[in-house]
């Protein structure tokens, strides 16, 4: 028998050589101080940073992002031109400014106000109009040092930015649902809110879920940008700090790669099951599954003919 796929064997040989070179590099180059890396990548501050600054931050930012995103998407699709305009302005701003820059801005927003207070707007000015000096109608307030630095500033930056992207995803999902569905619901006497909650959003989910999984994975990686707020209880901040303190920067960056690989892999597995679960139990799921089966049968056939062809 002649060799059927000379190209394939050549590729395997090249890859084998490259892999061997890479392993050789990992083992022999002193910049990879593996023992140092393993000793340091599980230290308590790093684990705390991982749990709070990476995991908790991802979950919170996504929860707020999805919630605000749905609201913005509904505003964007409303009949009211003012709501539509506000929603457009929001998505425009938060999608146009890079996340890194946004986080740097939010980290320093305390410069604008020393205190954040809630109450009657322009109270001092109103007071002056009526001849009262220093009128203060404030309900409650915080020192912005307490809330608008570190974790909260980072969370706000990531969540508000995420909301803009989620709004576009949710809008596409809502628009993917046939208009006849809304009409049928309204003809039954359902309100707009009920129609959205019970009829439109559940059907939009199948379009919304997959990109939301991608957004969550992107968010997990983007928590490393919190270094620029800065947020100190965060994985990359801590690894970076150890590296700079010990002048062993490279092993700690490798540790960061390994941590993010580990965390995103968990999310990828979760995403796989979520998408599989979401296809089930829906009206057209049976048909979709049939279609899928048809497609795999087709590609299987295509593969076979491709194998047979050259021989």
């Amino acid at each position: 028998m002649p060799v059927r796929h000379p190209g394939r064997w050549l590729a395997v040989a090249v890859l084998a050589v490259l892999a061997a070179m890479f392993v050789h590099l990992l083992v022999t180059n002193d910049a990879f101080d593996w023992a140092f890396m393993v000793d340091n990548m599980f230290r308590p501050p790093i684990i705390e940073g991982l749990l709070r600054g990476t995991v908790l931050m991802t979950v919170s930012a996504m929860l707020i992002g999805v919630t605000v995103g749905v609201v913005i998407a509904v505003m964007r699709l409303s009949d009211n031109p003012i709501l539509r305009g506000v929603a457009w302005l929001y998505t425009w701003f938060f999608r146009a400014v890079p996340r890194l820059v946004l986080l740097a801005v939010f980290g320093n927003i305390g410069i604008l106000w020393s205190r954040v207070e809630f109450g009657v707007p322009f109270d001092t000015q109103l007071g002056q109009l009526f001849g009262i000096d220093n009128l203060h109608l404030r309900l409650f307030g915080f020192s912005s040092r307490d809330i608008l630095t570190g974790f909260m500033a980072g969370l706000l930056g990531l969540a508000l930015s995420e909301a803009a992207y989620m709004a576009e995803i949710v809008r596409a999902g809502i628009q993917s649902v046939d208009g006849g569905q809304t009409e049928a619901a309204q003809a039954l006497g359902l309100s707009r809110g009920q129609t959205l909650r019970r009829v439109v959003l559940p059907q939009a989910m199948r379009v919304i879920i997959p990109p939301t999984g991608n957004e969550t994975i992107a968010m997990l990686k983007d928590t490393s940008l919190l270094l620029y707020v800065p947020v100190s209880v965060e994985l990359f901040f801590q690894l970076d700090a150890v590296g700079k303190r010990t002048f062993q920067i490279f092993p700690m960056y490798v540790a960061a790669c390994l941590w993010y690989l580990f965390l995103t892999s968990i999310l990828l597995v979760g995403q796989y099951f979520l998408e599989r679960h979401f296809g089930k139990g829906h009206g057209t799921a049976g048909r979709a599954r049939l279609r899928l089966r048809g497609m795999t049968a087709e590609t299987g056939g295509g593969g076979n003919s491709g194998m047979v062809g050259p021989s």
Binding site: E183, A184, A187, L188, V199, P202, G283, T284
Partner: peptide, 16 residues
């Protein structure tokens, strides 16, 4: 609308 039923050409059942 609750006291007026409507049936559409394309059914418009809720597929989920």
């Amino acid at each position: 609308r609750r006291s007026i039923g409507m049936v559409f050409q394309r059914f418009n059942l809720f597929p989920h």
